[in-house]
Amino acid sequence: MINKESLLTVKNIYLSFGGIMAVAGVSFNVNKGDVFSIIGPNGAGKTSILNTITGIYFPERGSIFLKGADITKMPVYKRPAKGVVRTFQNLELFKGMTVLDNLMLSRHSLMNYGIFSSIFYFGKPLREEVRHREKVEEIIDFLDLSGIRKKHVFELSYGLQKRVELARALALEPELLLLDEPMAGMNTEETEDMARYIIDINEERDTTIVLIEHDMNVVMDISSRILAIDFGEKICEGLPSDVANDERVLSAYLGEEKWI
Rank of each mutant, 00 (worst) to 15 (best):
M21C: 05
R225I: 11
A44L: 01
L143E: 06
G255I: 07
F154D: 14
A69M: 08
V84C: 03
T52I: 06
Y57G: 02
W259P: 05
Q89M: 12
P59S: 11
V243L: 11
E60G: 09
D101P: 15
I39G: 02
E155P: 14
P41V: 05
I209G: 01
I212G: 01
L15Q: 13
H132S: 12
T191V: 15
E128I: 09
G62C: 06
R61S: 13
H152I: 13
M220T: 10
E137I: 08
L143T: 15
A169P: 12
M111P: 03
K234V: 06
L145V: 05
A81F: 13
D242M: 07
N245A: 00
L179I: 11
N245D: 08
I260K: 15
Y121M: 11
G40A: 10
I64H: 06
G68E: 03
Y77C: 00
T191R: 07
E134K: 12
E257Y: 14
T208Y: 15
I222M: 02
K67W: 11
G19V: 05
D193M: 12
N31Y: 15
A44C: 03
M216C: 12
D144W: 00
E256T: 11
G185R: 10
T208N: 15
I209Y: 01
N217K: 13
K11H: 05
S223E: 01
K78H: 15
I2P: 14
S241A: 09
F142D: 02
P125L: 10
G18L: 07
G18V: 05
Y197K: 09
A169G: 12
D230K: 04
D34G: 05
E138L: 06
N29M: 10
N29S: 11
P240D: 06
C236Q: 09
V23A: 07
I260H: 13
M97R: 01
I49W: 01
G255S: 10
E128D: 14
I53W: 04
I212F: 09
G255Y: 14
L178Q: 08
K151F: 05
G147I: 00
V84A: 03
E256L: 04
G232S: 09
V76M: 13
T188V: 14
I56M: 09
L156I: 07
H214F: 08
E173R: 00
G232I: 02
Y253M: 08
M97G: 02
V210M: 02
G238C: 13
V243W: 02
R127Q: 14
M104E: 12
I53K: 06
S48F: 01
C236K: 14
A252P: 12
P174F: 01
